[in-house]
Structure formats: structure tokens, C-alpha cells
Design a protein around this nucleic acid. Structure first.
Lengths: 166, 166
DNA sequence: TCCAGTTAAATCGTGCACGATTATTTAGTA
DNA sequence: TACTAAATAATCGTGCACGATTTAACTGGA
């Protein structure tokens, strides 16, 4: 890409006024994009009776079940304080079951019900519909995904709060 | 347990794997990046007594004050249901004042107090500190910002909520 | 056997976010 | 003037998110 005045190969204080604003704008753009994306999912997920985080949980469970709460938390980057009530709502909606693992009573195994599995079929049309809404072309989306993935994996290492297992 | 099919690994076949999965991965990356970014701000903003949305509101007010609740909502992409309690917390912390506009009693004018202005000096070190934490180099951050900005402006047009499947 | 230490989930308190509704004020019009 | 319509915040209900704490269950030794 056209690199404009990239004389700051390192974190040079001289360019702070210019570069320092970048993080504000970038982080705000990230924050805004995430919120708008969630809002764009809503009309697609409302007919399924799911919120976006619930949809993410179901996606994870459709891929791998039964899963423990901890495994779901690892996959989604959420902790039990968020997941427990979310999963209870999915259970109340008849989409998943929650039961203690007989082999280790500390764990809770979560699994889609038949209704939860059936929902997967309804949900198949969501990605394509969502893709049509995204305002960039496929190449840009791919590059954006690639960059964000590097961003996320980089941030996970820098986050002291997230334990790094093994 | 009757686990006849211990691993129902129906990983997406080729029909889906190409483009349709991209939006899932991209939106999830966006969602994760936003959450991680907010978490990364926390240790920087805690000493200031601000959350990230509160920091955004103060940034907007430092740029332009007094602002109405509506103007702040426009700038941040939030509505009064979110902003009113947030601004009340800032007011309770002595950082802003809220008063009805005498010229139009429907509006509420929000303005930093002296304490709120003083906080701006403390906050000056935040962007540089944040920038050091971001795991990409400046060129990538610039491209990411540029792409996300186009993404956000594109989404804003597609948002209005009138689900007209015509 | 007992007991620390660890792990897993649930719980508590605070705060953000949105859809929908309500109350008040302002503007427009017969 | 009176009466409708639009604008502006505030409020209500539901749900997500996280730090901190609590409870229960497993683990590995003395």
C-alpha cells in the first residue's frame, strides 16, 4: 500500500501527535465496527431466537459437543460469569442441555438438543445473508480477516488477565 | 452416555468453507478484537477512573463542549438509553455537568468540569501507551484503520433497521 | 485418612448496549 | 387559540461482559 511518511520505523516520540491519534481512531473504529456488526446480525438472528453471543455459542457447540463451560469460554474468549447465564437462557429456550460430567462433577457438559440441532439447518442461510450486507469486496474482507486475526492473537499474548494454558 | 458417534465432526464441507465461512470468522475476529482492545485499555484507564465508553465520551467532550446528549450519541454511535446513565456516572464523579439548554428545554447540555478538564492532562499519555501494546506495526495499523473506517461508514448506511426483504 | 492446594462453575456487583415506551417541550397549522 | 406532529431525553426490561468472590469437587501428598 502507499506508505505515507513512514519515517517512524520505531516508536519515535517526534511523531506522537500524528501516530498517537491513530490508536484512538483505530480502537474507536474497532469498537464501532463490532457494535454495528452485531446490529446487522440482529434481523438475521431474531427469527432464530438468538442473540449474537448465543449464536457464537451454538456455532461452537455445533462443531463440538458436548463441550464444557470452560471449553466454550476458551473458544469464545468469555468466562463463566458471562457464559453461565447465557447457557441457562439457551437451556430455557430448549436449545441445549446442561449436566454435570459424571466423571468429574466439577465440569458441566453442554450439548445441543434435537431442537438445537434442527436450528442449525435454519442457521445455514445466515452467513451468506450476512456476507451480502458487508460493504467491502471479498479481497478486502479476506485481508481484513487476516489482519484482525494477527491482531487478536497478538493481543491475547499481551493480555495478562488471560491465562495462557500450556 | 450412549456415545455412538463420539465425534460428530461435521466440519463444513467444501460448499460452505470458501466464502460463507469468511464472514463468521471475520465477524468473530471483530468481536474478539473489540473485547480484547477494551480489556487492554482497562489498566490505562483505571487510574483515571474511567471505563472505555466513558473515555470516549470525555474525548468527544474535550473536543467539543458543551455538547447535547444527541450530539454525543451521534459522535459515538450510542443512544440516550446508553448515554444518559453513563453521563450521570460521569456527573456523579464530578467530571461533567448536565443542564437543560435554556434556549430549548428539550436539550441537555453536557460539559466537562474543571476536574474533567484536568483529567485531560492525565489522559495524554494513554494513546502512546496503548500504541505500544498493539501488536501490529504502524503500516498495518494504518491499513486496518483505513479499512475499518470504510467498513463502518458502509455499515452505517445499511443499518436503518427497516428489514424490508423486497 | 486427612488435609492443603488446585480446578471448575456459579454467584455478586457494576457497567454497557439496545429496543420500546413515556414525558416534556417545541414547531407547525387549521 | 387549540391541536397535531416532531424532536429530545429519560425510563424500563432484557441481555452481555468482567473483576472478584464463593462453593463444590478433584488431586497429591504426609
Amino acid at each position: 500500500m502507499t506508505a505515507e511518511t513512514t519515517t517512524t520505523s520505531t516508536h519515535a516520540p517526534a511523531q506522537f501527535s500524528g501516530v498517537a491519534k491513530l490508536d484512538q481512531q483505530l480502537c474507536f473504529a474497532l469498537y464501532s465496527a463490532s457494535g454495528l456488526m452485531t446490529r446487522l446480525y440482529r434481523p438475521l438472528l431474531d427469527p432464530l431466537g438468538l442473540t449474537y453471543p448465543q449464536y457464537l455459542a451454538m456455532l461452537a457447540l455445533w462443531e463440538r459437543s458436548p463441550s464444557t463451560v470452560g471449553e466454550l469460554g476458551e473458544a469464545l474468549g468469555l468466562d463463566s460469569a458471562t457464559l453461565t447465564p447465557l447457557l441457562k437462557r439457551l437451556e430455557a429456550g430448549g436449545l441445549v442441555t446442561r449436566r454435570r460430567d459424571p466423571a468429574d462433577e466439577r465440569r458441566v457438559l453442554v450439548e445441543p438438543t434435537a431442537k438445537g440441532q434442527a436450528l442449525r439447518e435454519q442457521a445455514r442461510s445466515v452467513p451468506a445473508a450476512m456476507l451480502c450486507n458487508l460493504p467491502l469486496d471479498v479481497d478486502e474482507l479476506k485481508y481484513l480477516h487476516h489482519t484482525l486475526t494477527r491482531f487478536v492473537s497478538g493481543l491475547r499474548k499481551a493480555d495478562p488477565g488471560t491465562a495462557s494454558p500450556s
